[in-house]
Lab assay of single mutants.
Amino acid sequence: DKPVLAIQVLGTVKWFNVRNGYGFINRNDTKEDVFVHQTAIKRNNPRKFLRSVGDGETVEFDVVEGEKGAEATNVTGPGGVPVKGSRYAPNR
């Protein structure tokens, strides 16, 4: 398990590439950019086929120490709701 650095952090999605399945979230508290992989998205938009977060979307997440620095995990919308997802992700 990766060491946990912070829990229930709010941030804004800087960018997310649906095809490659990753992007970055900017933390509201430290203004640090945190890597996010599609496997870290815990509550996906049920209408979306692929797990994703949308550019500019506000999300809540935990921060863990990854191999290359801070990574987001347990990604949801604020308060644990499903994320909205990327407009580029296909609908079901």
Score class of each variant (00 low, 15 high):
V4D: 07
L5S: 11
L10W: 06
T12N: 09
W15G: 00
F16I: 09
F16C: 04
N17D: 10
N20T: 11
G23S: 11
N26D: 07
N26T: 10
D29G: 07
D33N: 09
V34F: 09
V34A: 15
F35I: 11
F35S: 06
H37L: 03
H37P: 07
Q38H: 13
I41N: 06
R43Q: 14
N44P: 15
N44D: 07
N45V: 01
P46K: 09
P46W: 08
P46Y: 05
P46F: 05
P46G: 06
R47K: 14
R47W: 11
R47A: 14
K48P: 03
K48N: 07
K48G: 06
F49A: 15
F49T: 15
F49I: 14
F49S: 14
L50V: 12
L50P: 07
L50Q: 09
R51F: 05
R51E: 05
S52M: 02
S52F: 01
V53P: 02
V53Q: 01
V53C: 09
G54F: 03
G54D: 13
G54Q: 11
D55K: 15
D55R: 14
G56H: 06
G56I: 01
E57W: 00
E57V: 01
E57A: 01
E57K: 04
T58C: 11
V59P: 02
E60W: 07
E60V: 14
E60I: 11
E60K: 07
F61N: 01
F61Y: 03
F61R: 03
F61M: 08
F61I: 04
F61S: 01
F61H: 02
D62G: 02
D62H: 01
V63T: 01
V63D: 03
V63A: 00
V64W: 04
V64D: 04
V64R: 07
V64A: 05
E65D: 13
G66L: 00
G66Q: 04
E67Y: 14
E67H: 13
E67P: 15
K68Q: 12
K68A: 08
K68E: 06
G69P: 01
A70V: 12
E71F: 14
E71L: 11
A72F: 01
A72G: 03
A72P: 01
A72H: 00
A72T: 02
A72W: 00
T73A: 15
T73N: 12
N74F: 00
N74C: 03
V75T: 00
T76N: 03
T76E: 04
T76G: 06
T76Q: 08
T76M: 06
G77T: 05
P78Q: 07
P78G: 02
P78S: 02
G79Y: 09
G79N: 14
G79W: 06
G80F: 02
V81Y: 09
V81C: 13
P82I: 02
P82D: 08
P82W: 07
V83S: 03
V83K: 02
V83P: 04
K84R: 13
K84A: 09
K84F: 08
G85V: 02
G85R: 00
S86W: 04
S86G: 04
S86Q: 07
R87F: 10
R87E: 12
Y88G: 06
A89S: 10
A89K: 08
A89N: 06
A89I: 08
A89T: 07
P90V: 09
P90S: 11
N91K: 12
N91M: 13
N91T: 13
N91P: 12
R92S: 11
R92L: 11
R92A: 10
R92H: 12
R92N: 13
